[in-house]
Amino acid sequence: MSALLDRPWIWAWLAAFAAFAATAAISQSQGIAGLLVAALTFSAFTVLVGLGQMFVITLGPGNIDLSIPATMTLAATLSLKFMGGAGALALPGLAVALAVGLGAGLVNYALILLLRIPPIIATLAASFVYQSLAIWSNRGLRIKPPDLLSDLMLGRTLGLPNVAYIALAACLLAWVALERARYGREVTAIGQNLRAARFAGIAVERVRCATYLLSAALAGVTGFLLACFAGGAALNMGQEYLLSSIAVVVIGGSSIGGGRSNVPGVPAGAMFLFLIVSMLNSYGLGAGVRLLLTGVIIVGIVALGTRSRTAR
């Protein structure tokens, strides 16, 4: 039991369960099953981008990918345009989204390496350009995703939403990559001590490059899935993921300073974020109060969570 309580992600899960119970208690109309399905569906997208952000954050102080929202929007716009609603192009469409993501990741890393600027600024500056590209190619665009894909995204298997399975698979892969694969050990080593990692013979730049590629590729694919889910690409579709992708990593108990990350906390953080918002919703609060409380709760959690970890 005490071993379980020592896990950094346990608090995120407890908080998520508490938020679930509190929300289920007040929302009779929706029912517990409905709430669970909604929570799994909407947090799945946050989990996917959150995992990419987690690997980036693991790299150490200053490593944060701020281009995730713009990459999502750009990948969604271009892939939907490419498919043009044709179901036969579903897989090539996914490939386009993946390629856009990888391209964005490559540009991000090239800027970090060549200009020797903090990743926050590099990804921020690059995201301006991606956002502009998306606006330009999205102008007046109302392309629906192929029915095949929207059915898949909205559908359920064994009572649970399909997107939740995708997120679960991504979590398992990310767990193996972080805890069991050489890549994860190297990312963690770099985050704990860059110089020591370099002396230990780790190809630091190659690992960093792979990490930014991974984050952007996940953002691209998530943008694609989200657009299929929502029935089209909107220019502001990625906006909320700027905060949530970072917040779920921190709420999940990973260190924002890098070098200490965990995968199980990410889905818990994502569920918690969604449940908090839906709890405020079911109290019938207006948009203003909802936003205000969301912000205050996030800051509060981060303040408390960070404290309990440094105290140890």
């Binding site: 944060i64 926050i120 700027l242 905060l243 970072i246 917040a247 921190v250 924002i256 936003l291 205000l292 969301t294 912000g295 205050v296 996030i298 800051v299 981060v302 303040a303």
Partner: peptide, 11 residues
């Protein structure tokens, strides 16, 4: 970064 991002919601 996280605190100010959270505060952006509050403001």
């Amino acid at each position: 970064i996280v605190v100010t991002l959270g505060m952006s919601f509050a403001w």
